[in-house]
Every structure is written in structure tokens, then in C-alpha cells.
Computed example of a mutant assay.
Amino acid sequence: MKAVQTCGISDKETGFHAAGGECFWAVISNWHASVVADTQGIIGNDPETFHIIETLEFL
């Protein structure tokens, strides 16, 4: 599943815009358990966040 998330980033110094800001959403599931991850726009659209999401494993 893939969707476009509206991101209201406009502040060059902090990367945040008060009218939007949830710039990353992910729902990960193995059909028995689920994780919802989101960012608030200040941090989270970076390689470290994407690496964490990509390597998430359900045990």
C-alpha cells in the first residue's frame, strides 16, 4: 500500500510548518501485529529513520 502524505514544510531553519508537518507515515504489519510510524516534520525524513523502518522485524 502506498499513499501521498501532505507535508507542510516551509521553515528553512527548522524544516517545520505549523499547518502541516506529518511528512512521513508508515504502517507495517505481519498480519498478526502492526506498527504505525510517523514524523512531525522537524526530524524523521532522514536516512536513519528510513533505515529503522526498512529493517523492522516482527519476532
Rank of each mutant, 00 (worst) to 15 (best):
K2V: 15
K2A: 14
K2C: 12
A3P: 11
A3L: 15
A3V: 15
A3T: 15
A3Q: 15
A3R: 15
Q5L: 15
Q5T: 14
Q5V: 14
T6M: 11
T6W: 12
T6C: 11
C7A: 03
I9Q: 08
I9T: 10
I9L: 06
S10R: 04
S10L: 05
S10E: 06
D11G: 04
D11Q: 06
D11R: 03
K12R: 09
K12I: 09
K12G: 07
E13R: 06
E13I: 05
E13Q: 05
E13D: 06
E13P: 01
E13V: 06
E13K: 06
T14Y: 12
T14P: 12
T14R: 12
T14N: 14
T14D: 13
G15F: 00
G15S: 00
G15I: 00
G15R: 00
F16T: 09
F16K: 10
F16W: 13
H17G: 04
H17I: 00
A18I: 08
A19W: 02
A19E: 09
A19C: 08
G20C: 01
G20S: 01
G20I: 00
G20E: 00
G21D: 01
G21M: 01
G21A: 03
E22G: 04
E22R: 04
E22C: 04
C23R: 03
C23V: 04
C23N: 03
C23M: 05
F24N: 02
F24C: 02
F24P: 00
W25T: 10
W25C: 07
W25H: 12
W25G: 08
W25D: 08
A26Q: 08
A26D: 06
I28M: 05
I28C: 01
I28A: 04
I28F: 02
S29G: 01
S29H: 01
S29W: 00
S29P: 01
N30R: 00
N30L: 00
W31L: 13
W31H: 14
H32C: 04
H32E: 09
H32I: 03
A33K: 15
S34M: 07
S34P: 07
S34D: 07
V35G: 02
V35A: 06
V35S: 02
V36R: 07
V36T: 11
A37T: 10
A37W: 09
D38L: 12
T39D: 02
T39S: 07
Q40T: 10
G41M: 02
G41E: 02
G41H: 04
I42T: 11
I42R: 11
I43R: 09
I43Y: 11
I43D: 06
I43E: 08
P47V: 13
P47Q: 14
P47N: 14
E48A: 12
E48M: 10
E48W: 09
E48H: 09
T49L: 04
F50A: 08
F50E: 10
F50V: 09
F50L: 11
F50I: 09
H51V: 13
I52K: 10
I52V: 12
I52Y: 11
I53D: 03
I53F: 05
E54P: 10
E54Q: 14
T55S: 08
T55G: 04
T55M: 05
T55Y: 05
L56S: 12
L56T: 15
L56W: 15
E57Y: 12
F58Y: 10
F58E: 06
F58I: 08
F58R: 07
L59K: 15
